[in-house]
Each structure stands twice: as structure tokens, then as C-alpha cells.
């Protein structure tokens, strides 16, 4: 099987400061990779680089485009790149307000991305949007409401529906559960786990929460000061960490 995403030597500096240095990995279809580390470790920078929202100083990102094989993202035209971001990729922001359009209805938030894939039939778009609301456990009766009236957990689920409605093959998530109450987190995690499995999504999830990583990810990338210090099977890295920094990270978690 060919990788869906191939990343080599990805680096980014902010002046003198290292954002991200020499990061490389392959991601296969259906594989969930969690990037863990403390604030400032470079994990969010990495996500910005991977999703091509931020240009890298060095390194390459290749993506498997259906029918074309592994394509260097730097060689895509701006139109092709945007099309990919709107259809085949998803990006779930930590704060749902950054990923949703707050001035249009919940249904329009979901339908908009569907229209980017060529859907034009109003009734069908509405029906699909309604299906997706139900799928993320939102009441389809609230299709015409603005997301501002939703709770944080509901907004986050709406953002997930908006991203997944086009059946992307690759989704980036930036601390998707961080701003939520613990009880709401559990529901969202369970939902994400189910959707990732059912849709066979590949995902890169940035999180500082090792419990989230254990529940969702097949593989871990541990970052510190912009560099990957350890990588491996999720349970192996968490139960038998090798690098001093990973040992510190794992041993610092409070057991409940």
C-alpha cells in the first residue's frame, strides 16, 4: 500500500526561534497519528505546515491524489490546492468559531462544503446536511439556527460534520477537545473514534492530552522544541517511553 501523505525534512523558523525542524513521516490511509508535546513544542506549527496554511522553509509534503499518485504539494496550482483543502482534506480547529461561519445557519455550514464538491440540488444538500447533524448527535430540527446559539460541544460537533460531509481522506485536528468540559469531551471522543473507523479516515491530531492520543491514535509523534524526539506505536510509546522527555511527559500525568 502507498502512503497517503509523505513528509520529509519539514522545517520552519520564526527568526532565530525554531518552529519546527526536520520533521518527516509517512501516513497511510486509515491511519491516525497523534502529535503530542507541551505548548511551544512546535506541534501546532507542524499542523499549519502540513495543511499548507503556512509555507515551510525547507522540506516537502507529498499527497496521494486519486489517479495521479504522490504529488508534491509545492507543485500544485493555487486552485488545485484550494480545491483539495475544501474537499479531500478537512481541518478541525481547536476553537469551533474559527472553523465555522458564525453568521450562517448550521445547515449552511455543512452544505457549503458539499457545494464545493459540485452539489447543486438544494433539497439534496439540505437532506445530507440534516443527516450529518444527526450523525454528530445534533438535533436536525436545529438545521436553520445560527451556530452562535449552540454550546461549545455542539459547535465542535457541527465543525466536525462540516469537515466530514465531503468524505475527506485526510483530516487535521488541532486540540479538538481542549476547550470542552470533560463530560462533553468523552462524547466527542467516542464520536470521533467511531467516525474515523467507519469512514476509514487518515488523521493527524495535535493534542497535549495523552488520554486523547491513547484513545484515538494508532501512532504517536512526540515533539519537543520543534523536533520529533520519539515516534512509535501509541501504547508502546505511552507504556514504555524511551526518550527522557517522553518519560517526563508520561510520568507527569495524574492518574485518576
Amino acid at each position: 500500500m502507498n502512503p497517503l501523505l509523505r513528509v520529509n525534512g519539514l522545517s520552519k523558523r520564526y527568526g532565530e526561534r525554531i518552529g519546527c525542524a526536520d520533521v518527516g513521516f509517512d501516513l497511510y490511509p486509515g491511519e491516525v497519528l497523534a502529535v503530542v508535546g507541551e505548548s511551544g513544542s512546535g506541534k501546532s506549527t507542524l499542523l499549519q505546515l502540513l495543511s499548507t496554511r503556512l509555507p515551510a522553509d525547507a522540506g516537502s509534503i507529498h499527497y496521494q491524489i486519486t489517479g495521479r499518485g504522490l504529488v508534491d504539494m509545492a507543485h500544485l496550482s493555487e486552485a488545485e490546492r484550494r480545491w483539495l483543502l475544501r474537499t479531500d482534506w478537512g481541518f478541525v480547529e481547536q476553537n469551533p468559531r474559527d472553523g465555522l461561519r458564525m453568521n450562517v445557519s448550521a445547515g449552511a455550514n455543512v452544505g457549503e462544503r458539499l457545494m464545493a464538491t459540485g452539489a447543486r440540488h438544494y433539497g439534496q444538500i439540505r437532506a445530507t446536511a440534516s443527516d450529518w447533524l444527526a450523525r454528530v448527535e445534533l438535533d436536525p430540527a436545529r438545521l436553520d439556527e445560527l451556530p452562535a446559539g449552540f454550546s461549545g460541544g455542539m459547535q465542535q460537533r457541527l465543525q466536525i460534520a462540516r469537515n466530514l460531509v465531503t468524505r475527506p481522506r485526510l483530516v487535521f485536528m488541532d486540540e479538538p477537545t481542549a476547550g470542552l468540559d470533560v463530560s462533553v469531551q468523552a462524547r466527542l471522543l467516542d464520536l470521533m473514534r467511531e467516525l474515523v473507523t467507519d469512514l476509514g479516515l487518515a488523521a493527524v491530531i495535535v493534542t497535549h492530552d495523552l488520554a486523547v492520543a491513547r484513545l484515538l491514535a494508532h501512532r504517536l509523534l512526540v515533539m519537543r522544541q520543534g523536533r520529533v524526539v520519539e515516534t512509535g506505536l501509541t501504547d508502546q510509546v505511552l507504556d514504555d517511553p524511551q526518550h527522557p522527555y517522553t518519560q517526563l511527559l508520561v510520568s507527569s500525568v495524574l492518574q485518576v
Binding site: 512509535g232 508502546q236 514504555d240
Partner: peptide
């Protein structure tokens, strides 16, 4: 046992 499962390296 954990080594046999690949849980310990």
C-alpha cells in the same frame, strides 16, 4: 508478556 504483544520495546 507485554514484549510478546509489542507493548514494550
Amino acid at each position: 508478556l507485554r514484549c510478546l504483544y509489542g507493548n514494550y520495546l
